[in-house]
Amino acid sequence: MNHLHIINGDATLNGFNQTGLDGDVLVWREVFSEGPLAVTLDAEFWSKRAEFVAQTFKDAPGNYQEMILQELEKLSEPYDDITLWFEFDLHCQVNLLGIMQLLQQHVDLSVPQIYLVCPDDFPDVTNFKGMGQLNGEQLESLYDNRLHLTDYDFTLATEAWQKYITGNVHELQQWIDENPFWGSMHLLKPALQAHVKRLQQNEDGLGYIEQKLLQLYKNGISSRAAVFEAFSNELPIYGMGDAEVDAYLNRLINKGLIALE
Protein backbone atom coordinates (compact mmCIF):
# COMPACT_ATOMS: atom_id res chain seq x y z
CA MET A 1 0.00 0.00 0.00
CA ASN A 2 1.10 3.56 -0.68
CA HIS A 3 0.89 5.85 2.34
CA LEU A 4 1.14 9.62 2.65
CA HIS A 5 1.66 11.49 5.91
CA ILE A 6 0.84 15.21 5.90
CA ILE A 7 2.62 16.79 8.86
CA ASN A 8 1.87 20.30 10.06
CA GLY A 9 5.29 21.97 10.20
CA ASP A 10 8.90 20.92 10.56
CA ALA A 11 8.79 20.65 14.36
CA THR A 12 7.19 17.19 14.18
CA LEU A 13 9.41 15.94 11.37
CA ASN A 14 12.39 14.98 13.56
CA GLY A 15 10.27 12.78 15.81
CA PHE A 16 8.38 11.35 12.86
CA ASN A 17 11.65 10.30 11.22
CA GLN A 18 12.32 8.21 14.34
CA THR A 19 9.17 6.15 13.77
CA GLY A 20 8.98 2.97 11.77
CA LEU A 21 6.01 4.21 9.79
CA ASP A 22 6.07 3.59 6.05
CA GLY A 23 5.13 6.14 3.42
CA ASP A 24 5.92 9.51 1.92
CA VAL A 25 5.88 12.71 3.97
CA LEU A 26 4.44 16.07 2.96
CA VAL A 27 5.43 18.87 5.33
CA TRP A 28 2.71 21.52 5.47
CA ARG A 29 4.37 24.87 6.17
CA GLU A 30 1.55 27.32 5.45
CA VAL A 31 0.00 29.62 8.06
CA PHE A 32 -3.68 29.76 7.07
CA SER A 33 -4.60 31.25 10.45
CA GLU A 34 -3.13 34.51 9.13
CA GLY A 35 -3.75 36.41 5.90
CA PRO A 36 -6.06 36.11 2.87
CA LEU A 37 -8.03 32.93 2.19
CA ALA A 38 -10.58 31.86 -0.41
CA VAL A 39 -13.18 29.17 -1.00
CA THR A 40 -11.25 27.69 -3.92
CA LEU A 41 -7.56 26.93 -3.58
CA ASP A 42 -6.60 27.67 -7.18
CA ALA A 43 -3.54 29.26 -8.83
CA GLU A 44 -4.72 32.79 -8.03
CA PHE A 45 -5.14 31.82 -4.38
CA TRP A 46 -1.59 30.46 -4.10
CA SER A 47 -0.19 33.55 -5.81
CA LYS A 48 -1.85 35.80 -3.22
CA ARG A 49 -0.66 33.58 -0.40
CA ALA A 50 2.92 33.68 -1.66
CA GLU A 51 2.82 37.48 -1.75
CA PHE A 52 1.31 37.70 1.73
CA VAL A 53 3.82 35.30 3.29
CA ALA A 54 6.79 37.07 1.68
CA GLN A 55 5.64 40.50 2.87
CA THR A 56 4.41 39.56 6.34
CA PHE A 57 7.23 37.26 7.40
CA LYS A 58 10.01 38.99 5.43
CA ASP A 59 10.67 35.86 3.41
CA ALA A 60 12.23 35.62 -0.04
CA PRO A 61 9.44 35.18 -2.64
CA GLY A 62 11.13 32.14 -4.18
CA ASN A 63 11.05 30.25 -0.90
CA TYR A 64 7.28 29.81 -1.14
CA GLN A 65 7.65 27.78 -4.32
CA GLU A 66 10.27 25.52 -2.78
CA MET A 67 8.97 25.15 0.76
CA ILE A 68 5.23 24.98 0.11
CA LEU A 69 4.14 24.55 -3.50
CA GLN A 70 6.68 21.87 -4.37
CA GLU A 71 5.58 19.89 -1.33
CA LEU A 72 1.97 20.04 -2.52
CA GLU A 73 2.96 18.36 -5.78
CA LYS A 74 3.05 15.11 -3.79
CA LEU A 75 -0.75 15.18 -3.76
CA SER A 76 -0.72 14.33 -7.47
CA GLU A 77 0.65 10.87 -6.62
CA PRO A 78 -1.77 7.97 -6.01
CA TYR A 79 -2.07 6.88 -2.38
CA ASP A 80 -4.11 4.20 -0.64
CA ASP A 81 -4.31 6.13 2.60
CA ILE A 82 -3.44 9.61 3.80
CA THR A 83 -2.85 10.50 7.45
CA LEU A 84 -3.16 14.12 8.57
CA TRP A 85 -1.01 15.04 11.58
CA PHE A 86 -2.40 18.26 13.08
CA GLU A 87 -2.78 19.56 16.61
CA PHE A 88 -5.46 21.22 18.74
CA ASP A 89 -4.58 24.89 18.35
CA LEU A 90 -6.08 27.45 15.98
CA HIS A 91 -2.97 27.52 13.79
CA CYS A 92 -3.17 23.77 13.21
CA GLN A 93 -6.95 23.55 12.99
CA VAL A 94 -7.21 26.19 10.26
CA ASN A 95 -4.38 24.51 8.38
CA LEU A 96 -6.28 21.24 8.77
CA LEU A 97 -9.42 22.82 7.30
CA GLY A 98 -7.34 24.12 4.40
CA ILE A 99 -5.71 20.79 3.60
CA MET A 100 -9.12 19.10 3.72
CA GLN A 101 -10.41 21.64 1.19
CA LEU A 102 -7.38 21.01 -0.97
CA LEU A 103 -7.92 17.26 -0.85
CA GLN A 104 -11.57 17.63 -1.80
CA GLN A 105 -10.80 19.95 -4.68
CA HIS A 106 -7.81 18.15 -6.18
CA VAL A 107 -7.81 14.51 -5.06
CA ASP A 108 -10.22 11.69 -5.93
CA LEU A 109 -11.31 10.86 -2.39
CA SER A 110 -13.06 7.67 -3.49
CA VAL A 111 -9.61 6.04 -3.60
CA PRO A 112 -7.59 6.83 -0.44
CA GLN A 113 -8.76 6.42 3.12
CA ILE A 114 -8.16 9.62 5.08
CA TYR A 115 -7.15 9.54 8.74
CA LEU A 116 -6.48 12.16 11.40
CA VAL A 117 -3.99 12.28 14.25
CA CYS A 118 -4.94 15.24 16.42
CA PRO A 119 -3.81 15.27 20.08
CA ASP A 120 -4.36 17.99 22.65
CA ASP A 121 -2.30 16.25 25.32
CA PHE A 122 -0.05 13.25 25.84
CA PRO A 123 0.54 11.09 28.95
CA ASP A 124 3.39 12.33 31.15
CA VAL A 125 4.09 15.33 28.90
CA THR A 126 3.46 18.48 30.91
CA ASN A 127 2.49 21.71 29.16
CA PHE A 128 1.81 19.85 25.91
CA LYS A 129 1.94 22.23 22.96
CA GLY A 130 2.43 19.96 19.99
CA MET A 131 3.77 16.78 18.49
CA GLY A 132 7.19 18.35 18.12
CA GLN A 133 7.67 17.43 21.80
CA LEU A 134 7.23 13.71 21.11
CA ASN A 135 9.66 11.01 20.02
CA GLY A 136 9.12 8.32 17.43
CA GLU A 137 7.65 5.76 19.83
CA GLN A 138 5.17 8.29 21.19
CA LEU A 139 4.12 9.35 17.68
CA GLU A 140 3.59 5.72 16.71
CA SER A 141 1.21 5.30 19.63
CA LEU A 142 -0.82 8.24 18.31
CA TYR A 143 -0.85 6.67 14.86
CA ASP A 144 -2.24 3.44 16.27
CA ASN A 145 -5.27 5.41 17.49
CA ARG A 146 -5.78 7.65 14.46
CA LEU A 147 -9.33 8.59 13.50
CA HIS A 148 -10.94 7.74 10.17
CA LEU A 149 -12.38 10.87 8.56
CA THR A 150 -15.84 10.42 7.08
CA ASP A 151 -17.89 12.31 4.52
CA TYR A 152 -19.52 14.10 7.44
CA ASP A 153 -16.15 15.34 8.65
CA PHE A 154 -15.34 16.75 5.22
CA THR A 155 -18.74 18.43 5.00
CA LEU A 156 -18.19 19.93 8.44
CA ALA A 157 -14.73 21.12 7.44
CA THR A 158 -16.11 22.81 4.34
CA GLU A 159 -18.77 24.63 6.34
CA ALA A 160 -16.20 25.71 8.92
CA TRP A 161 -13.79 26.89 6.21
CA GLN A 162 -16.48 28.97 4.52
CA LYS A 163 -17.54 30.56 7.81
CA TYR A 164 -13.95 31.19 8.83
CA ILE A 165 -12.89 33.00 5.66
CA THR A 166 -15.83 35.43 5.79
CA GLY A 167 -14.42 36.98 8.96
CA ASN A 168 -17.95 37.59 10.25
CA VAL A 169 -17.75 37.00 13.98
CA HIS A 170 -21.51 36.79 14.50
CA GLU A 171 -22.10 34.28 11.72
CA LEU A 172 -19.22 32.12 12.89
CA GLN A 173 -20.40 32.15 16.50
CA GLN A 174 -23.95 31.27 15.43
CA TRP A 175 -22.66 28.37 13.34
CA ILE A 176 -20.59 27.10 16.26
CA ASP A 177 -23.55 27.34 18.64
CA GLU A 178 -25.95 25.59 16.27
CA ASN A 179 -23.67 22.76 15.21
CA PRO A 180 -24.78 19.66 17.18
CA PHE A 181 -22.03 17.16 16.30
CA TRP A 182 -18.34 17.57 15.54
CA GLY A 183 -17.57 14.07 14.30
CA SER A 184 -13.85 13.32 14.34
CA MET A 185 -13.11 17.07 14.32
CA HIS A 186 -13.41 17.11 18.09
CA LEU A 187 -10.90 19.92 18.68
CA LEU A 188 -12.21 22.28 16.02
CA LYS A 189 -14.84 23.93 18.22
CA PRO A 190 -12.51 25.35 20.92
CA ALA A 191 -10.09 26.55 18.24
CA LEU A 192 -12.85 28.40 16.40
CA GLN A 193 -14.09 29.89 19.66
CA ALA A 194 -10.57 31.24 20.19
CA HIS A 195 -10.77 32.76 16.72
CA VAL A 196 -14.09 34.43 17.57
CA LYS A 197 -12.37 36.06 20.55
CA ARG A 198 -9.47 37.08 18.30
CA LEU A 199 -11.82 38.90 15.90
CA GLN A 200 -13.31 41.14 18.57
CA GLN A 201 -11.77 44.58 19.11
CA ASN A 202 -11.75 46.92 22.08
CA GLU A 203 -12.57 50.63 22.03
CA ASP A 204 -9.01 51.39 20.89
CA GLY A 205 -9.35 49.17 17.84
CA LEU A 206 -7.02 46.49 19.21
CA GLY A 207 -7.82 42.83 18.70
CA TYR A 208 -7.52 40.23 21.44
CA ILE A 209 -3.99 39.15 20.44
CA GLU A 210 -2.76 42.75 20.42
CA GLN A 211 -4.40 43.39 23.77
CA LYS A 212 -2.66 40.39 25.31
CA LEU A 213 0.72 41.36 23.90
CA LEU A 214 0.28 44.92 25.13
CA GLN A 215 -0.61 43.59 28.57
CA LEU A 216 2.55 41.46 28.64
CA TYR A 217 4.60 44.51 27.69
CA LYS A 218 3.00 46.63 30.42
CA ASN A 219 3.78 43.84 32.88
CA GLY A 220 7.47 44.35 32.18
CA ILE A 221 8.12 41.78 29.48
CA SER A 222 9.95 43.91 26.95
CA SER A 223 12.21 41.66 24.86
CA ARG A 224 10.92 39.78 21.84
CA ALA A 225 12.18 36.41 23.05
CA ALA A 226 10.52 36.86 26.45
CA VAL A 227 7.26 37.97 24.84
CA PHE A 228 7.29 34.94 22.52
CA GLU A 229 7.71 32.56 25.46
CA ALA A 230 5.15 34.28 27.71
CA PHE A 231 2.51 34.45 25.00
CA SER A 232 3.01 30.81 24.04
CA ASN A 233 2.65 29.70 27.66
CA GLU A 234 -0.41 31.85 28.35
CA LEU A 235 -2.35 31.22 25.13
CA PRO A 236 -1.31 27.87 23.60
CA ILE A 237 -4.76 27.61 21.96
CA TYR A 238 -3.52 29.94 19.21
CA GLY A 239 -0.45 27.86 18.40
CA MET A 240 1.35 30.91 17.08
CA GLY A 241 5.02 30.67 16.20
CA ASP A 242 7.53 33.44 16.83
CA ALA A 243 7.15 34.86 13.31
CA GLU A 244 3.39 35.17 13.73
CA VAL A 245 3.64 36.84 17.13
CA ASP A 246 6.31 39.12 15.71
CA ALA A 247 3.90 40.39 13.07
CA TYR A 248 1.45 41.44 15.80
CA LEU A 249 4.25 43.05 17.80
CA ASN A 250 5.30 45.08 14.78
CA ARG A 251 1.76 46.42 14.47
CA LEU A 252 1.90 47.62 18.07
CA ILE A 253 5.30 49.17 17.46
CA ASN A 254 4.02 50.98 14.36
CA LYS A 255 1.15 52.35 16.45
CA GLY A 256 3.63 53.67 18.99
CA LEU A 257 2.22 51.51 21.78
CA ILE A 258 5.35 49.53 22.62
CA ALA A 259 9.11 49.84 22.21
CA LEU A 260 10.86 46.50 22.60
CA GLU A 261 14.44 46.07 23.74
Results as ranks from 00 to 15, higher is better:
residue 191 A to I: 12
residue 189 K to A: 11
residue 10 D to C: 03
residue 245 V to M: 11
residue 241 G to Y: 05
residue 154 F to E: 02
residue 100 M to Y: 07
residue 85 W to P: 12
residue 208 Y to Q: 02
residue 130 G to A: 08
residue 112 P to R: 10
residue 127 N to P: 01
residue 96 L to I: 05
residue 187 L to V: 04
residue 82 I to W: 10
residue 9 G to K: 01
residue 227 V to Y: 04
residue 243 A to W: 09
residue 155 T to S: 14
residue 52 F to C: 03
residue 15 G to E: 02
residue 192 L to N: 11
residue 185 M to C: 13
residue 184 S to C: 09
residue 43 A to I: 12
residue 248 Y to H: 15
residue 67 M to P: 01
residue 203 E to P: 01
residue 193 Q to L: 15
residue 163 K to Y: 07
residue 118 C to R: 02
residue 5 H to T: 06
residue 247 A to H: 07
residue 66 E to L: 00
residue 223 S to H: 11
residue 256 G to C: 13
residue 133 Q to T: 05
residue 146 R to D: 01
residue 177 D to E: 09
residue 115 Y to P: 11
residue 218 K to H: 12
residue 160 A to T: 13
residue 226 A to P: 03
residue 148 H to E: 14
residue 150 T to H: 10
residue 97 L to S: 10
residue 144 D to F: 13
residue 143 Y to I: 14
residue 105 Q to V: 07
residue 226 A to S: 13
residue 176 I to M: 03
residue 223 S to M: 08
residue 48 K to G: 01
residue 74 K to L: 15
residue 182 W to M: 03
residue 119 P to R: 05
residue 218 K to I: 01
residue 204 D to S: 09
residue 176 I to T: 02
residue 163 K to G: 03
residue 14 N to A: 15
residue 109 L to C: 13
residue 135 N to K: 10
residue 225 A to K: 09
residue 104 Q to L: 11
residue 36 P to M: 00
residue 219 N to D: 15
residue 191 A to N: 12
residue 162 Q to C: 06
residue 71 E to R: 02
residue 93 Q to R: 08
residue 28 W to G: 01
residue 205 G to P: 08
residue 70 Q to K: 09
residue 118 C to Q: 05
residue 44 E to N: 09
residue 64 Y to P: 07
residue 77 E to I: 04
residue 27 V to D: 01
residue 13 L to V: 07
residue 81 D to E: 07
residue 13 L to D: 08
residue 198 R to E: 14
residue 258 I to V: 11
residue 252 L to V: 06
residue 114 I to F: 06
residue 39 V to P: 10
residue 65 Q to M: 01
residue 21 L to E: 08
residue 87 E to G: 03
residue 258 I to Q: 02
residue 75 L to C: 12
residue 114 I to M: 10
residue 131 M to S: 10
residue 60 A to M: 03
residue 174 Q to W: 06
residue 135 N to A: 04
residue 29 R to A: 00
residue 80 D to Q: 13
residue 150 T to C: 08
residue 137 E to I: 15
residue 212 K to A: 06
residue 93 Q to P: 15
residue 252 L to N: 09
residue 166 T to K: 12
residue 27 V to P: 07
residue 73 E to A: 03
residue 201 Q to A: 04
residue 196 V to W: 08
residue 187 L to A: 07
residue 145 N to F: 08
residue 254 N to C: 09
residue 28 W to L: 00
residue 232 S to W: 10
residue 221 I to Q: 08
residue 135 N to I: 03
residue 57 F to H: 08
residue 54 A to Y: 01
residue 118 C to V: 00
residue 133 Q to K: 09
residue 248 Y to M: 12
residue 241 G to V: 08
residue 86 F to L: 12
residue 138 Q to F: 04
residue 74 K to T: 11
residue 61 P to Q: 10
residue 109 L to A: 04
residue 213 L to N: 07
residue 138 Q to R: 06
residue 148 H to S: 15
residue 120 D to C: 11
residue 169 V to E: 14
residue 260 L to T: 07
residue 194 A to N: 04
residue 210 E to I: 00
residue 2 N to R: 15
residue 145 N to H: 11
residue 248 Y to N: 05
residue 127 N to K: 05
residue 45 F to E: 09
residue 128 F to M: 13
residue 158 T to V: 11
residue 86 F to G: 06
residue 142 L to N: 08
residue 238 Y to G: 01
residue 14 N to R: 15
residue 48 K to F: 01
residue 103 L to H: 04
residue 257 L to E: 09
